[in-house]
């Protein structure tokens, strides 16, 4: 097997010891025992026996080494953090990140616009008219329609009303026109800031001029509340 004389001499010098080793090491442990050994789960006498074998067996030594290597790799999270950290050394990333972090501080130092001025400046763009239907509330009573007057630029409007809502029940609202056609399909409503105060946001395009009824149904009892309004 060995051609180099030095190598031959080396092999020959080990031969007796190797024969002795092979004689005392016994059969290879099962894969289960080897895994348990590498995880240090074996009882002391078994661990000693397996260790003694591994010391004398090339293949088991390699296998234990591989098991240990597979278990000792850094966790993916740690590697991911290292990748992020390494990117921070890139000046472009570092300056970009610094600018991003300083921007909120800059906003904090900038003179603030008064709330009123802010409201005035944005109100034309986000103004949504709101109409209270409270005066028309009534269960099964003859309700007087509330008039909803919309401007040409109004894309949406809010119907605001109060219902005696129970916190443990669910409520669904639906809006139909005078002929029973659905303008706004059944949807669940929840109370806003104060208990029982409901605000329905409606899209203008779903409505034409005419009478409409908002029906609010209490899911478990079937109790209904109706609110009538008229679009001009």
């Amino acid at each position: 097997m060995q051609t180099d004389p030095e190598e031959q001499s080396f092999a020959a010098s080990l031969r007796d010891g190797i024969q002795e080793l092979k004689g005392e090491r016994g059969p290879c442990p099962s894969s289960e025992e080897l895994v348990a050994f590498s995880e240090e789960r074996l009882a002391a006498p078994d661990a000693l026996r397996v260790r003694s074998h591994v010391e004398a067996c090339g293949l088991c030594d390699v296998l234990v080494g591989r098991l240990a290597k597979a278990a000792d790799r850094p966790a993916p999270d740690a590697k991911a953090w290292w990748r992020v950290w390494r990117h921070l050394w890139n000046p472009v990333v570092a300056y970009g990140l610094a600018a991003l972090l300083l921007y909120p501080a800059y906003l904090g130092l900038k003179p603030r616009v008064s709330p009123r001025a802010l409201e005035e400046s944005i109100s034309p763009a986000i103004s949504i008219p709101s109409f209270s239907l409270d005066s028309q509330r009534g269960a099964g009573t003859a309700a007087q329609p509330h008039v909803v007057r919309l401007k040409d630029q109004d894309k949406s409007f809010i119907l605001d009303f109060f219902v005696p809502m129970s916190t443990d029940r669910r409520y669904f609202a639906e809006i139909r026109d005078g002929s029973g056609r659905t303008a706004v399909g059944r949807r669940e409503v929840v109370s806003g800031d104060s208990p029982g105060r409901v605000s329905l946001v409606c899209r203008r395009e779903a409505f034409v001029a005419g009478d409409y009824t908002v029906t609010l149904t209490e899911d478990s009892t079937g109790r209904r509340f109706e609110y009538v309004f008229q679009i001009e």
């Binding site: 001499s9 010098s13 010891g17 024969q19 002795e20």
Partner: peptide
Amino acid sequence: DEPVTAGEEMRRVTAIQIR
């Protein structure tokens, strides 16, 4: 295994020394 050549000093390496 090949015949052991006698007289080499390294021959005296025992199992325990190898370990």
